[in-house]
């Protein structure tokens, strides 16, 4: 009797572990299937020319150079806008505000901001930046819109990073007669920085992949030249992908181009992630050593 209970225990444990193992393998498998699918279909069109030439012949030939540059511009622009604002407001909320209804209200609003569908951001960006501010369809309007969209992500991850800094460090610093700002700048931020970078990674992923917010604010259907200033329109990878799949001059013929574009987009995101990870590890080490 006893033995059978023990055996049953072992069997159920084994079954559970195998189930978990399978599930976690599945996640990885799905990622590899997608990657494999894109590589299989898209690698044919990838060439130096594809990356560095303008699109030609109704986007059925040539390259996607302006879309790559456009997406990079939008990533840099939106992060330049959202990173300082996000980090500073998270700092203020986490380090300076005492617990009050107002703080809870701000927190709730930040969460709500994160829950707004991206197409609504696009609409809002068009109304405010494009029309009201008169930026027109431009890099700056698109970056600001994307920046607004990822602001909650950055605020949330920065807050989490700050909360993960043990209070004993703050107390030690304050007890030595340092001011709150000195404590934040010299102790808290250096410790939290690697984790704040995580927020940036996540935002970069979203910024480079979103189509809706740039639809009305920056993206050009077809613009075979590089932007001259931040008030120029640009092409962008996700929108370009959408265009050549749905409304190109010859959809069938541009299908391989679509897979190639998707592959480039995913590669950019992966590279950004790797770079951010390397940065994170570098700063993490620096915090420990210096």
């Amino acid at each position: 009797m006893k033995i059978s209970i023990i055996q049953r225990k072992r069997y159920s444990q084994n079954i559970a572990f195998w189930a978990f193992r399978l599930l976690s393998f599945m996640v990885v498998a799905i990622l590899f299937i997608i990657l494999g699918f894109l590589i299989y279909n898209g690698v044919k069109v990838i060439s130096w020319d594809f990356l560095t030439e303008m699109p030609q012949d109704g986007m059925t030939k040539g390259g996607i150079y302006p879309a790559i540059i456009g997406t990079l511009c939008l990533i840099v622009g939106s992060i330049l806008f959202a990173f300082p604002i996000g980090v500073l407001s998270a700092l203020f909320m986490n380090e300076y505000m005492k617990d009050s209804w107002f703080k809870r209200f701000l927190n709730q609003m930040t969460n709500n901001l994160g829950g707004i569908p991206s197409i609504v951001f696009g609409l809002f960006g068009m109304a405010l930046f494009v029309n009201k501010f008169g930026f027109g369809d431009s890099i700056i309007a698109g970056s600001l819109t994307l920046g607004l969209m990822v602001l909650p992500v950055i605020i949330r991850t920065t807050e989490e990073a700050l909360k993960a800094v043990n209070d004993t460090f703050r107390h030690a610093s304050l007890a030595l007669g340092s001011s709150k700002w000195q404590t934040v700048r010299r102790v808290v931020l250096p410790i939290a920085f690697p984790n704040i970078i995580t927020g940036v990674i996540l935002s970069i992923g979203r910024v480079s992949g979103e189509t809706a917010p740039i639809l009305f604010t920056v993206a050009a259907y077809f613009l075979p030249r590089l932007p001259q200033s931040i008030f120029d329109q640009v092409m962008a990878l996700p929108y370009h992908l959408y265009v050549i799949i749905t409304s190109g001059t010859n959809i069938e013929e541009s299908r391989p181009m679509a897979y190639g574009t998707a592959l480039v987009l995913i590669t950019i995101v992966l590279i950004m992630n790797l770079v951010a990870n390397a940065l994170r590890r570098y700063f993490g080490k620096k915090v420990k050593m210096s």
Partner: peptide, 30 residues
């Protein structure tokens, strides 16, 4: 006040800095 009244806590809580910088910290912030 806290320059005049120092404190040592229950758990050792050195900053993630070098030994030297840990001791110098209080001087630098002041």
């Amino acid at each position: 006040l806290r320059k005049k009244v120092g404190m040592v806590f229950q758990k050792p809580n050195p900053f993630p800095k070098s030994i030297y910088e840990n001791v110098a910290y209080g001087l630098r912030v002041n």
